[in-house]
């Protein structure tokens, strides 16, 4: 993996700086614990990589952060707002790219984005400006009148990222957003999102099982069997596991599954 990012100092875990703070979060499906007392935070300017094999609890965690589920055990705060008590304020600071495609295929790019802007209460003028900004940044503005059905997978993903950023959230959540994309599209999205985090205005939580999507300054959160097995910057995780590479560290931490 080529790391073109300067080493990024982890920000102190201050309340205001944390775009996402998860404390003691548990969740179970019946008797099966999907998440067991998870605690971590992601600060503005950070790109948190949530790494875990399938079934590690990533999807459950995302469902809880997006409030599709609710857990009475533990607490989630987005930009300082408690997700359970101030859910609307918290959700206003959240942008999400789900693993499944969620655009309306028969609607144009622009219609899809206006729908989202309406849901977030943006005025028409504001929405127009924001749609232009976000689409231009991804080189998709010229294609705004096209139906989503006509776009390829990579371009659809770009539209979804633009949509997630439309209301200027503090936290961007991405659930395995590059699955099924070709290498150039994947690389473009990985680089774009990392640059976004580096701007310092937003925090990113990126769920993946692809090691090569990690860049030097990322904060790793390795999840396995519903627990956090390791957490910290890349050098910290390497040191704590005694591994030579993130891949090796990941294998060591999740090996139990194979045993």
């Amino acid at each position: 993996m080529k790391s073109n990012a300067p080493y990024f100092n982890p920000l102190p875990d201050g309340v205001e700086m944390n775009a996402l703070a998860v404390e003691g979060l548990s969740y179970a499906y019946g008797k099966k614990k999907a998440l067991d007392k998870i605690s971590f935070s992601v600060a503005l300017g950070q790109c948190g990589i949530l790494l875990g094999p399938n079934g590690a609890g990533k999807t459950t965690l995302f469902s809880l952060i997006t409030r599709l589920y609710d857990s009475p055990e533990g607490r989630i705060r987005i930009a300082g707002h408690d997700l359970r008590r101030e859910s609307n304020r918290a959700l206003a600071q959240l942008g999400v790219v789900f693993q499944q495609p969620t655009l309306d295929l028969d609607l144009t790019v622009e219609q899809n984005l206006y729908y989202h802007a309406d849901l977030h209460g943006l005025s028409r003028r504001k929405a127009k400006g924001r749609i232009r900004e976000e689409l231009e940044r991804q080189g998709m503005y010229e294609r705004r009148k096209e139906k989503v059905r006509q776009l390829n997978g990579g371009h659809r993903r770009r539209v979804e990222i633009a949509r997630a950023l439309l209301h200027e959230p503090r936290l961007l959540l991405l659930d395995e957003p590059t699955v099924g994309l070709d290498v150039p599209s994947r690389r473009a999205i990985v680089n774009y999102v990392h640059e976004l985090a580096r701007s310092g205005q937003i925090a990113v939580l990126w769920a993946t099982h692809l090691i090569d999507e990690i860049q030097g300054g990322d904060r790793l959160i390795i999840l396995h069997q519903g627990r956090i097995q390791a957490m910290g910057s890349v050098p910290e995780v390497l040191e704590s596991t005694g591994a030579a590479s993130v891949g090796e560290a990941f294998d060591r931490l999740t090996r139990r599954e194979a045993a």
Binding site: R67, L91, Q99, L103, L119
Partner: peptide, 14 residues
């Protein structure tokens, strides 16, 4: 199933 219901449900409204 397709996920677009999620887009509606994560909007910051009751």
């Amino acid at each position: 199933e397709m996920g677009s219901m999620k887009i509606l449900l994560v909007s910051p409204l009751p």
